[in-house]
Computed example of a mutant assay.
Amino acid sequence: MDFVTSNSQRMMESSMRFLWSKQTAILDNISNAETPGYKTKYVTFEESFKRSLLAASGASRPTAAFREAIENARPTVHTAVSESARMDGNGVNLTEQGVELARNAYQLRYAMRSIDSDLSILRTAIKGQ
């Protein structure tokens, strides 16, 4: 049963959480592209996740610390306050957001396929085929 609760599976869950948050922020940005004064949202995850893992490596019980760092990893949504793409103060660059939306969709698809592949192996083992 360690297969389902492994650190790699938990990391995939954390990645999916990040990608979903990023997707939501991008869609908010696109839907507010005509709102005067709206500032672009962006999501970060990797930097804080790396810091958490580095801190866990120095813990007295690194295995438990790694698991805790992975489980507690959360993306952070930021607002780009100083950026402005238009005269009305709106900070959304639709071309940039469209590219990010496509990139994020591919990353989500890859992550879902990876999780599905792991679960397919588990289903096959349970069925005994």
Rank of each mutant, 00 (worst) to 15 (best):
K22V: 02
G58K: 09
D28Y: 11
R51P: 01
P36I: 11
M87S: 14
T44L: 04
G89C: 11
T35S: 14
L94E: 08
E83Q: 13
S15W: 06
L53V: 06
K39D: 05
A65Y: 05
E83W: 10
A65V: 08
K41Y: 02
V77Q: 10
A25I: 06
S60A: 14
T124V: 07
S117K: 13
E46P: 00
V4R: 13
G91K: 02
T63W: 02
S14D: 03
N90H: 08
R109M: 09
T63I: 05
P62F: 10
R109I: 04
V99M: 15
Q97H: 08
T76H: 04
L122Y: 11
I30P: 02
Q129D: 09
S14G: 15
A73W: 01
V81S: 14
T63M: 10
R61V: 07
A85N: 14
V77G: 05
S120R: 10
S48T: 12
G98H: 10
S21A: 15
R17H: 10
F3M: 12
E83S: 12
E47K: 15
L119K: 08
I126T: 04
M11E: 06
R109W: 03
E83V: 14
M16E: 13
R123V: 03
K39E: 09
E13R: 11
K50D: 06
R103P: 00
A102E: 03
S21K: 12
P62W: 08
S15D: 08
M1F: 07
Y110S: 09
G128T: 02
H78Y: 13
D116M: 05
I30C: 05
N90C: 09
R61S: 13
Q23G: 01
A64K: 11
R51A: 15
K22F: 02
S31N: 15
S114W: 07
S31Y: 06
N29K: 11
M1A: 11
R74I: 06
V77D: 05
S57E: 13
M16R: 05
Q97R: 10
I126W: 01
T79R: 15
E71D: 15
T35F: 11
S117T: 05
M16H: 05
A33C: 12
R86D: 09
T35C: 03
Q129E: 12
I115N: 00
K127E: 00
P62Q: 13
S48H: 10
S15M: 10
A65H: 04
N93W: 04
F66C: 03
Q9N: 06
M112L: 08
W20T: 13
L53P: 01
L119G: 00
S15V: 05
D28V: 03
S114P: 01
S31C: 06
F18L: 13
T44R: 05
S21T: 15
N32W: 08
M12P: 00
S14M: 12
A102M: 14
R67K: 12
A59M: 04
E100S: 14
A85L: 03
N29E: 10
R67S: 13
I126D: 00
D88A: 12
V4W: 06
F45I: 09
I30W: 04
P36E: 12
A73N: 01
M11T: 08
S15P: 01
T40P: 01
Y42R: 11
N7C: 05
N32A: 13
D118T: 03
S82W: 06
N93D: 15
N72A: 15
L19F: 10
S117I: 01
A65W: 05
T124W: 01
V43D: 04
G91S: 11
L27F: 04
E83R: 12
Y38K: 03
S84C: 06
D116K: 11
M11P: 01
